[in-house]
């Protein structure tokens, strides 16, 4: 019934996802800049990383396509049938990287809390320069 609008909707849907990713990235950036709690900053950092990961995955998407697994009955060269697997592979690496970042960040946060007894950045800085 909406067959003739299908492409339009698809288009809109595509754009909406881009916008959402952009908003997500900016939320992360906002958090990093504005939040004073170090833990919240790190959470915001993670939001930013996730936005970038989603961005990459989004570039791979095609409507109606499926995973890049060679199913019986499909030919290997039929690119229309498959989602681009490369971004997914890249993002696996990126996720690992972000995991490592979180690990180091958490270790540092724990150390900061041990040393200064606080995670509020202004307070930590005040105690640091004391």
């Amino acid at each position: 019934m909406f067959g003739q609008y299908y492409h339009l909707l698809d288009h809109l849907a595509g754009y909406a996802s881009w916008w959402l990713i952009g908003v997500l990235f900016l939320i992360g950036l906002y958090g990093i800049i504005v939040k004073e709690n170090l833990l919240k900053k790190i959470m915001a950092l993670n939001v930013m990383q996730v936005a970038v990961i989603l961005f990459f995955l989004n570039t791979a998407q095609k409507s109606g396509a499926t995973l890049a697994v060679l199913l019986p009955g499909e030919t290997a060269g039929a690119v229309d049938v498959y989602v681009n697997p490369l971004p997914a592979a890249l993002m696996l690496t990126a996720i690992v990287v972000s995991l490592a970042v979180m690990g180091v960040a958490m270790a540092l946060v724990i150390q900061v809390y041990r040393c200064y007894g606080s995670l509020e950045e202004p307070e930590v800085l005040r105690r640091m320069h004391k």
Binding site: L45, V52, A105, L108, Q111, C115, M128
Partner: peptide, 26 residues
């Protein structure tokens, strides 16, 4: 003691920078 805070702040800024870079690459 002080280096821990400096490192954490550097981590936050540096990771954000890496995100920027990665987005550009994207």
């Amino acid at each position: 003691r002080r280096a821990i805070v400096a490192a954490l702040r550097y981590l936050i800024i540096g990771t954000a920078a890496a995100c920027f870079y990665l987005l550009g690459v994207g």
